[in-house]
Design a binder for these strands. Structure first.
Length: 491
DNA sequence: CACTAGTGCAA
DNA sequence: TATTGCACTAGTG
């Protein structure tokens, strides 16, 4: 049932890029008269009832959808061919539909008791922090309300306020960090927020999403949402499970393998930077990767004009920011903010970078020219993203469009690569008659549940498929790890 | 209940 | 004034 719907959605997504952000909603709206919010609430309700995409009452017959697909097939195929998207559709997007369906159906097991224990621990800790905050504030208030919090911090305690938002003073993390040198309270609020976030979004929410039928969590992998070609995940979003802080990372201990199985994680190493090296044809970047060098160290050596051995931690960090900033089309001003340096210094870094890696700047310029000319960006497999605002007269709109135009071919090519790898791995697993299953994709990582005795075999097979999905001028590397939980699968 | 704003999690 | 998402809570009408 979902297959035919998704078939049409994928086609409409490839063919109608102006509407791709809403292609599912557009389709449903057009064909069945649902508004977007209605669609959202219906899919949510249906998910809760475990009754399919829509509630029973509102399900349009599967055959009418199939008929609809058939009616538009010919004209859509013609347009795919015209735009050179047939290969992408036939080799990647169409076969991926079944792969995603299998992943959603396979689901992932969570340790409900683990989350219940963690929830209690968080409650205890939150209560203590709450008391401390009320004590410091001299009154009780809702710590989660930015309005009330701003009242305490800026009106009552008289702390220096930063930027204002549409509705009042900002209480953002960034700002509270700076304020923590002035007063004890901001630090406690930050701690409170971290714990509350973990508890409400992950620890308490996930156990409620376990299916009665399978005892597992079944996310939705949305194929027609992200403008660059990535997947998104919803209900729940399994692509934003905490990783950075130690406490947050604990959540991953709650994602477990079935008995007799292990979770195998495979992730592309710096795939977007490698794609940048490939797209730009910059030999210095390519050679660094060919030689297996530390790319940030190598970049630092070039920017600062020193030997790689002489690069300090600080220099490497600055180079890392420049490298990643590049992927997002960051300005010298943005870089200066991130590194806490002056704009002049940041400008020097950028100039140093352009001087030693001239082809990166050349690529950016020619890419922007082509977007202005054609109106869209292109990935390695020809996937398009239309960028209307590239000619906007409003400067901030235009600059936003320019950043998207720089980022899209890179992010989108990485999406092409992992999607193709997923299709190939899925095919191979079927051929091997393996019990291993792909369960989650997180943009540059694949999580598989694998029978313990097959781990090494599956690991090397999947790694090979990921590394060879697209042939680039730059070597592609994949890191792998496995264990009884998602936490353990990362080394 | 529908909706927006602010915030924060991931790659 | 760094890209792409999803979701939680508060607050408005």
């Amino acid at each position: 049932m979902e297959g035919s719907l998704f078939d049409t959605c994928v086609a409409s997504y490839l063919l109608d890029p102006e509407r791709r952000d809403h292609s599912l909603g557009y389709l449903i709206e057009g064909e069945y008269g649902f508004s977007l919010p209605e669609l959202k609430s219906q899919t949510k309700a249906a998910k809760k009832e475990d009754a399919g995409l829509f509630g029973e009452e509102t399900v349009p017959p599967a055959c009418s959808r199939a008929e609809g697909v058939l009616k538009v097939q010919e004209s859509l195929e013609g347009r795919l061919r015209e735009d050179g998207l047939l290969d992408l559709y036939n080799r990647v997007e169409a076969p991926l539909i079944a792969v995603l369906a299998d992943m959603e159906e396979a689901g992932v097991r969570i340790d409900v008791d683990f989350f219940l224990r963690m929830s209690e621990n968080l409650s205890t800790a939150l209560n203590k922090i709450e008391k401390k905050i009320y004590d410091l504030a001299g009154e009780q208030f809702n710590i989660r309300s930015n309005k009330q919090l701003a009242g305490i911090l800026f009106d009552k305690l008289g702390l220096p306020y930063g930027r204002k938002t549409k509705t009042g003073y900002s209480t953002s993390q960034d700002l509270l960090e700076n304020l923590s040198s002035e007063h004890e309270l901001p630090r406690w609020v930050l701690d409170y927020r971290e714990l509350f976030k973990l508890k409400s979004t992950y620890v308490d929410a996930l156990p409620h999403l376990v299916s009665d039928k399978t005892g597992k969590i079944h996310t939705n992998f949305n194929q027609t949402v992200v403008a660059t070609g990535r997947l998104s995940s919803s209900q729940p979003n399994l692509q934003n499970i905490p990783m950075r802080t130690e406490l947050g990372r604990e959540v991953r201990k709650g994602f477990i393998a079935d008995k007799g199985y292990a979770l195998l994680s495979l992730d592309y190493s710096q795939v977007e930077l490698r794609i940048l090296a490939h797209l730009t044809g910059e030999e210095k970047l390519r050679d660094a990767y060919v030689r297996g060098e530390d790319i940030h160290r190598a970049t630092a050596a070039l920017i600062f004009g020193v030997e790689p051995e002489a690069v300090t931690g600080e220099m490497r960090n600055a180079a890392k920011m420049v490298n990643y900033g590049l992927l997002y089309g960051m300005s010298a001003y943005g870089l200066s903010r991130r590194l806490g340096i002056s704009r002049e210094e940041a400008m020097e870094f950028v100039q140093g970078y352009s001087a030693s890696l001239p082809k990166v700047k050349k690529w950016k310029d020619s890419n922007l020219d082509s977007v202005r000319e054609e109106g869209y960006t292109t990935t390695l497999m020809g996937r398009r993203r239309y960028i209307r605002d590239i000619r906007a007269t409003d400067r901030s709109r235009r600059e936003f469009a320019e950043r998207a135009a720089i980022n899209s071919p890179i992010q989108g090519s990485a999406a092409d690569m992992i999607k193709l790898a997923m299709v190939n791995i899925h095919k191979e697993l079927a051929g091997m008659n393996s019990r291993a299953k792909m369960t989650i994709q997180i943009h540059d990582e694949l999580l598989l549940q694998v029978p313990e005795e097959e781990i090494e075999k599956i690991c090397s097979m999947a790694k090979e498929k990921m590394v060879t999905a697209l042939e680039l001028d730059v070597p592609i590397e994949v890191d792998a790890g496995w264990g009884p939980t998602w936490y353990d699968a990362h080394h």
